[in-house]
Every structure is written in C-alpha cells, then in structure tokens.
C-alpha cells in the first residue's frame, strides 16, 4: 500500500522516507491538541487547525490528519482533500528554511525564473521538494506583493529584493 502513496507524492515532490515521531513531537502534539480544544467550536475551524499543524510540524503528517479527523469529527477524506488543495500545506516535511521565489508577473519579467533556476541548481531540488538534510525546501510562491523590489525571494519571513543570480549563493549560505 505504501507504494501507491509515494507514487502519488512523487508527482509533486521527491521520494522521501520519513516516519512521524510521536515521542519527539510530544510537546507539539499537545500544543495542537490544546489549540483544537480552543478553536473546535469555531465555524470552519478546519483551515485554522491545519494551518497550526503545518506551522508546528512543518508538514501535515498522516498521523496528525487522522488525529484531527477524530477530534473534529470531520471525515479523513475531506481533510485530505483540503490538505492537498492549498499549496501552503505539505504532505512531506519541509526544510528548516523555506524559500519562496516569487513567480509573479513583475518578478517574471525581471528574471525571477533565473533566480529560481540558480537556487535549484545550488540545492539540487526543485519546487515542492526538500533537501535530504532537511535544511531547505522551495515553495512556488505567487506574487509576494513586493513588486517594487522585483525580482524577489522570501526565506522564512525575510524578503530579499532586487536580486541578481550572483546574490543567491551568498544569501543561501547565511542559512546553512
């Protein structure tokens, strides 16, 4: 059964072997549980809870989705549907540093694609993938709203603007 799962993931990401570590994530699971208790009666709470889980774990582990399904009494098929619809949710672990290269129009006409290519070249991964050491992952990001600084990329919450291909290596090194 596992094969089908990874086969599906391979469409959007690299094949990664990983297992959710309950023991190591004990505190985070508790945090999520108390968040759920607080929000579960809010209308439309699922999105908020998935966002919180994504923040806490860096991805949405199957085990956590099952836990949310049970707690909120929402069918797992629906949760999986929501988790795979929105691009900010990930089913594979994201890296410590999430790089978003803006592929909005202003950045595109000013060479955003070249910046992305350079990052991909340096890290050896492409969009929606994570480096094997889990240091970096790349997100396809649509317009970050910093068109005045095009081309732009965002690492975690930090924005880097007016980039040239030559800047990339140095910036990435800051996060290694």
């Amino acid at each position: 059964m596992k094969a089908v799962f990874f086969d599906n993931l391979a469409k959007g990401g690299n094949k990664m072997e990983f297992k959710f570590n309950w023991e190591g994530n004990k505190e985070r699971v508790e945090q999520l549980n108390s968040f759920m208790k607080e929000k579960r009666y809010k209308k439309g709470a699922l999105m908020m809870i998935l966002q919180e889980a994504q923040d806490l774990f860096g991805y949405l582990p199957i085990e956590i989705q099952k836990m949310i399904s049970k707690e909120l009494n929402i069918p797992l098929s629906e949760i999986y549907g929501v988790a795979t619809f929105y691009s900010q949710f990930s089913l594979i672990p994201k890296g410590e540093n999430v790089i978003g290269v803006c592929l909005g129009t202003a950045c595109y006409v000013k060479g955003g694609q070249d910046i992305l290519a350079k990052i991909e070249e340096i890290l050896g991964i492409t969009i929606a993938e994570t480096t094997p050491d889990r240091k970096f992952s790349i997100d396809a990001t649509r317009c970050l709203g910093s068109c005045g600084l095009a081309p732009v990329m965002m690492i975690n919450d930090e924005i880097y603007g007016r980039l040239t291909v030559d800047d990339v290596e140095e910036i990435l090194n800051k996060y290694r």
Partner: peptide, 25 residues
C-alpha cells in the same frame, strides 16, 4: 481568517468555501 495559497479563493464563493473550512472550489 488566513488563506493557504490558492489564487482561486479570491473568487467570492470559493473564498466562502475556504472560510467554511473546505476546498476553495
């Protein structure tokens, strides 16, 4: 309420679906 990366949610009814905690269709 926060979006989660779906351009189509700028469409009114998709946005409402998303607030309701569903796929933004």
């Amino acid at each position: 309420r926060l979006g989660a990366g779906a351009f189509v949610c700028g469409e009114g009814t998709a946005l409402m679906e998303s607030i309701e905690g569903k796929r933004g269709m």
